[in-house]
Design a binder for these strands. Sequence first.
DNA 1: GGGCTACTATGACCGTTGTCATAGACGGGA
DNA 2: TCCCGTCTATGACAACGGTCATAGTAGCCC
Lengths: 200, 200
Amino acid sequence: MAVSERGPRERMVFSAAQLIRRDGVGPTGMRDVAAHAQAPRGSLQHYFPGGKEQLVNEAVAWAGRYAGNRIARFLAALPEPTPSGLFAEMVRQWTDEYETSGFAGGCPVAAATVDCAESTASTREAASAAFSTWTGSVAEALTGMGVAEERAAALATLMISSLEGAIVIARAERDVRALRTVSGELGPLLDAAVPKTVAD
Amino acid sequence: MAVSERGPRERMVFSAAQLIRRDGVGPTGMRDVAAHAQAPRGSLQHYFPGGKEQLVNEAVAWAGRYAGNRIARFLAALPEPTPSGLFAEMVRQWTDEYETSGFAGGCPVAAATVDCAESTASTREAASAAFSTWTGSVAEALTGMGVAEERAAALATLMISSLEGAIVIARAERDVRALRTVSGELGPLLDAAVPKTVAD
DNA sequence: GGGCTACTATGACCGTTGTCATAGACGGGA
DNA sequence: TCCCGTCTATGACAACGGTCATAGTAGCCC
C-alpha cells in the first residue's frame, strides 16, 4: 500500500505486479500501470525502454524477491519453528488478505506464467527464476529445522505447488476453504520430515 | 486432436479451451478461435450470442467435465485402485504431454480464473463449478477406495491444488520436476487415508 | 415454387493497446 | 547565461480487439 514513497520507477513496478495479479498480464495496460502508480505516462518509455515485456519481467522478479523475503520474516515470527508452522503462516498471508480485502488478487508469478509462458520467453524465465528464489528460501528454512537437504527442496516445491493451486481454487470459489484444507492436510506430512529428538 | 468431426459449435468450444490454456483468456481472440476450429467466423455470433464471455464460460465448463470424466477412466485403468495410484495417473497425464509435446499448455480452468476471477463474474462461477465437478469426481473415487467421505473431499482438494500448482511451476521451468515431486511426496499421505485391512 | 429457419460470409465500427516522436520542464555545473 | 542530462508531457500512429449490420446460401416443409 505504501505507494506514495519511493521513486516513480519502483512504484510502477509495484503497481504492475498488483494489476497483473488482479487481471492477468494481457488485460493490464501500460497506461493503467502509470495511472495506478500515480506516475507520469511519459516515464514509462524512459524507465522501461524494453516496453511492457521489461516491465512485466521486473514485476515478476520483484514478486519473487518479495515472496522469498517473507519466508525469513515468517520464520522469525514463529515462536518455535516447525515446517507446518511455516506453511500455516504462508497460507495465512492469503486467508487474511482474502477475508479482509476480498478475493481480488492472486499470485502475480502464476499469472505471468499462465499468460506468457508460451508467448514470451523472457517472462517465462523471469517466472522460473521467481519460483526458484521462493523455493530456495523455503528449502533453506526447512533445512534450518533439520530437514535433509534434498528432502527440503522437494517439500518446498510441494508447499508452493499446493499453495499456488489453492490460491487459484480459493479465488474461483471466493472461499478460503481450499487454502485451509491444504494447510491442515499437509501439516503432519511436513513435520514428519524433521528428525525426532528427545523431548524439548 | 479430433478436430474434424463433431459440429462446428463443439469444435469452437474445444478450440477455445485449447487456446486459452496456451495463451490465457485475454490474448486469445475470437477470430483465432474460429480459425483454429476451422469454423466460419460468422458462426461465432450465431452460436455464441453472449460473445466471448459465453464462449469462455463454455470452454471452462467443457474442461471441467473433461477432467471429471478422466478420473473415472484413470480409475478403470488401475489394476488395483489406490489413492496414490490415481494421483500418479492424474500427474502422468501432464508429464506425458509435456515430455512428448512440449510445455505449451496449462490448465484452462486455472487460466480463466487467473484472468477473469475479478473482472468477469460469470467466468469465475464457471471456473468454480468446473473445480467442483472435478473435485467431486476425485472425492467419489477416493470414497470408493474406502476413504471417509469428509476426508475424501479434503484430499481431493489437496490433490487438485498440488497438481494445479505443479503445472504452473512445470511450465515456468519447462521441467516436469515439480509434477514428479508432488506425486512422489503426496503418495504415502494419500494411501494412509484408506483404512487398513488384513492382507489382500 | 414460396417461405421459413439455420447457418455462413464480410465488411465496417469504435475503442483500446503498445509504441514512437516530438517537445517541454527541471536542475545543476561551468 | 548556456549547456546538457534526466525526466515529463502529449499527441499520433498503426494494429488489433470484440461486436454489430447486412447480405448471402442451404436445406426443408407446405
